[in-house]
Amino acid sequence: MAVHKKEEFSTKEQSLAAFAKAISHPARIAILSVLAKRNQCICGEIVEVLPLAQSTVSQHLKELKNAGLIDGETDGPRSCYCINWKAFEKFNTDFNSLFEKLKEANAKCC
Protein backbone atom coordinates (compact mmCIF):
# COMPACT_ATOMS: atom_id res chain seq x y z
CA MET A 1 0.00 0.00 0.00
CA ALA A 2 1.33 3.45 -0.92
CA VAL A 3 2.08 5.82 1.93
CA HIS A 4 1.25 9.50 1.54
CA LYS A 5 4.35 11.48 2.51
CA LYS A 6 3.17 15.00 1.67
CA GLU A 7 3.30 15.92 5.36
CA GLU A 8 7.06 15.34 5.30
CA PHE A 9 7.51 18.57 3.32
CA SER A 10 7.34 22.10 4.64
CA THR A 11 4.21 24.20 4.38
CA LYS A 12 6.02 26.50 1.97
CA GLU A 13 7.02 23.58 -0.28
CA GLN A 14 3.47 22.26 -0.26
CA SER A 15 2.06 25.71 -1.00
CA LEU A 16 4.42 26.28 -3.94
CA ALA A 17 3.57 22.86 -5.35
CA ALA A 18 -0.18 23.48 -5.03
CA PHE A 19 0.16 26.83 -6.80
CA ALA A 20 2.22 25.28 -9.59
CA LYS A 21 -0.31 22.48 -10.01
CA ALA A 22 -3.20 24.96 -10.19
CA ILE A 23 -1.58 26.92 -13.03
CA SER A 24 -0.15 23.87 -14.81
CA HIS A 25 -2.74 23.90 -17.60
CA PRO A 26 -2.49 26.44 -20.45
CA ALA A 27 -6.24 27.09 -20.27
CA ARG A 28 -5.85 28.25 -16.66
CA ILE A 29 -3.04 30.61 -17.66
CA ALA A 30 -5.30 32.01 -20.39
CA ILE A 31 -8.19 32.41 -17.94
CA LEU A 32 -5.93 34.27 -15.50
CA SER A 33 -4.80 36.55 -18.35
CA VAL A 34 -8.41 37.36 -19.23
CA LEU A 35 -9.23 38.08 -15.59
CA ALA A 36 -6.18 40.30 -15.19
CA LYS A 37 -7.10 42.36 -18.25
CA ARG A 38 -10.71 42.83 -17.19
CA ASN A 39 -10.19 43.03 -13.42
CA GLN A 40 -13.28 40.88 -12.99
CA CYS A 41 -15.22 38.76 -15.41
CA ILE A 42 -18.41 36.77 -15.85
CA CYS A 43 -17.80 33.14 -16.80
CA GLY A 44 -19.68 33.61 -20.09
CA GLU A 45 -17.30 36.40 -21.09
CA ILE A 46 -14.35 34.08 -20.61
CA VAL A 47 -16.01 31.45 -22.79
CA GLU A 48 -16.42 34.05 -25.56
CA VAL A 49 -12.66 34.71 -25.80
CA LEU A 50 -11.31 31.18 -25.29
CA PRO A 51 -11.64 28.20 -27.64
CA LEU A 52 -13.22 26.09 -24.90
CA ALA A 53 -16.70 24.87 -24.04
CA GLN A 54 -18.61 26.43 -21.15
CA SER A 55 -18.28 23.26 -19.07
CA THR A 56 -14.50 23.15 -19.62
CA VAL A 57 -14.06 26.79 -18.60
CA SER A 58 -16.21 26.17 -15.52
CA GLN A 59 -14.05 23.20 -14.53
CA HIS A 60 -10.85 25.24 -14.86
CA LEU A 61 -12.41 28.11 -12.88
CA LYS A 62 -13.33 25.62 -10.16
CA GLU A 63 -9.72 24.39 -9.96
CA LEU A 64 -8.38 27.95 -9.75
CA LYS A 65 -10.93 28.86 -7.10
CA ASN A 66 -10.23 25.72 -5.05
CA ALA A 67 -6.54 26.62 -5.11
CA GLY A 68 -7.40 30.11 -3.82
CA LEU A 69 -6.02 31.85 -6.91
CA ILE A 70 -9.33 33.45 -7.85
CA ASP A 71 -12.38 34.61 -5.95
CA GLY A 72 -15.88 34.21 -7.29
CA GLU A 73 -19.42 35.19 -6.52
CA THR A 74 -22.55 33.59 -7.88
CA ASP A 75 -25.57 35.76 -8.60
CA GLY A 76 -28.27 33.48 -9.90
CA PRO A 77 -27.06 31.89 -13.14
CA ARG A 78 -24.09 34.28 -13.38
CA SER A 79 -20.71 33.74 -11.77
CA CYS A 80 -18.28 36.64 -11.51
CA TYR A 81 -14.56 35.99 -10.93
CA CYS A 82 -11.47 38.03 -10.10
CA ILE A 83 -7.84 37.26 -9.28
CA ASN A 84 -6.85 36.84 -5.64
CA TRP A 85 -3.77 39.07 -5.73
CA LYS A 86 -2.77 38.21 -2.15
CA ALA A 87 -2.30 34.57 -3.18
CA PHE A 88 -0.15 35.65 -6.14
CA GLU A 89 1.93 37.98 -3.96
CA LYS A 90 2.56 35.14 -1.49
CA PHE A 91 3.57 32.81 -4.32
CA ASN A 92 5.86 35.48 -5.76
CA THR A 93 7.59 35.96 -2.41
CA ASP A 94 7.90 32.22 -1.77
CA PHE A 95 9.08 31.44 -5.29
CA ASN A 96 11.68 34.21 -5.25
CA SER A 97 12.96 32.89 -1.93
CA LEU A 98 13.22 29.38 -3.39
CA PHE A 99 14.91 30.71 -6.53
CA GLU A 100 17.54 32.55 -4.47
CA LYS A 101 18.23 29.43 -2.38
CA LEU A 102 18.61 27.34 -5.53
CA LYS A 103 20.98 29.90 -7.05
CA GLU A 104 23.10 29.87 -3.88
CA ALA A 105 23.28 26.08 -3.94
CA ASN A 106 24.11 26.07 -7.65
CA ALA A 107 27.02 28.47 -7.08
CA LYS A 108 28.66 25.67 -5.10
CA CYS A 109 27.96 23.07 -7.77
CA CYS A 110 30.73 21.61 -9.91
Score class of each variant (00 low, 15 high):
100 E>P: 00
99 F>G: 01
20 A>S: 14
44 G>R: 14
86 K>P: 00
88 F>N: 02
88 F>M: 03
58 S>I: 02
68 G>M: 01
108 K>I: 08
65 K>A: 09
47 V>Y: 05
22 A>V: 01
72 G>W: 02
78 R>N: 11
34 V>S: 12
91 F>T: 01
73 E>R: 10
20 A>W: 13
45 E>N: 09
44 G>Y: 10
109 C>V: 12
59 Q>E: 14
35 L>V: 12
92 N>E: 08
1 M>W: 05
70 I>F: 00
45 E>L: 04
56 T>V: 09
69 L>H: 05
59 Q>C: 05
16 L>M: 13
71 D>E: 11
53 A>F: 10
101 K>N: 07
104 E>N: 09
58 S>G: 06
67 A>M: 01
50 L>C: 03
62 K>W: 06
45 E>S: 06
100 E>H: 12
48 E>P: 01
16 L>H: 13
78 R>S: 13
37 K>A: 15
102 L>Q: 08
45 E>I: 02
98 L>Y: 06
72 G>M: 07
52 L>G: 00
51 P>W: 11
79 S>R: 14
65 K>W: 03
56 T>H: 10
29 I>Y: 09
11 T>P: 13
93 T>A: 13
101 K>M: 07
24 S>C: 10
101 K>H: 06
60 H>C: 03
40 Q>T: 11
57 V>T: 01
105 A>C: 08
83 I>L: 06
18 A>S: 15
54 Q>P: 04
86 K>E: 15
92 N>P: 00
21 K>A: 08
83 I>T: 02
23 I>R: 12
46 I>G: 03
82 C>R: 02
1 M>R: 11
49 V>I: 08
47 V>C: 03
86 K>W: 05
56 T>C: 04
66 N>Q: 14
30 A>H: 11
69 L>R: 03
66 N>C: 08
56 T>K: 10
32 L>R: 07
65 K>R: 14
4 H>K: 13
80 C>M: 10
43 C>G: 05
6 K>P: 08
18 A>M: 14
53 A>H: 14
12 K>D: 04
50 L>R: 03
3 V>Y: 09
93 T>D: 13
100 E>D: 10
106 N>E: 14
88 F>V: 02
27 A>M: 15
94 D>F: 05
75 D>H: 07
29 I>S: 11
102 L>Y: 12
83 I>A: 02
71 D>C: 04
79 S>P: 01
34 V>Q: 11
26 P>E: 04
23 I>H: 06
33 S>P: 02
44 G>I: 11
26 P>H: 14
91 F>D: 03
79 S>T: 15
43 C>E: 15
81 Y>C: 03
77 P>W: 09
12 K>C: 09
109 C>D: 13
46 I>H: 01
46 I>N: 00
95 F>K: 07
28 R>H: 11
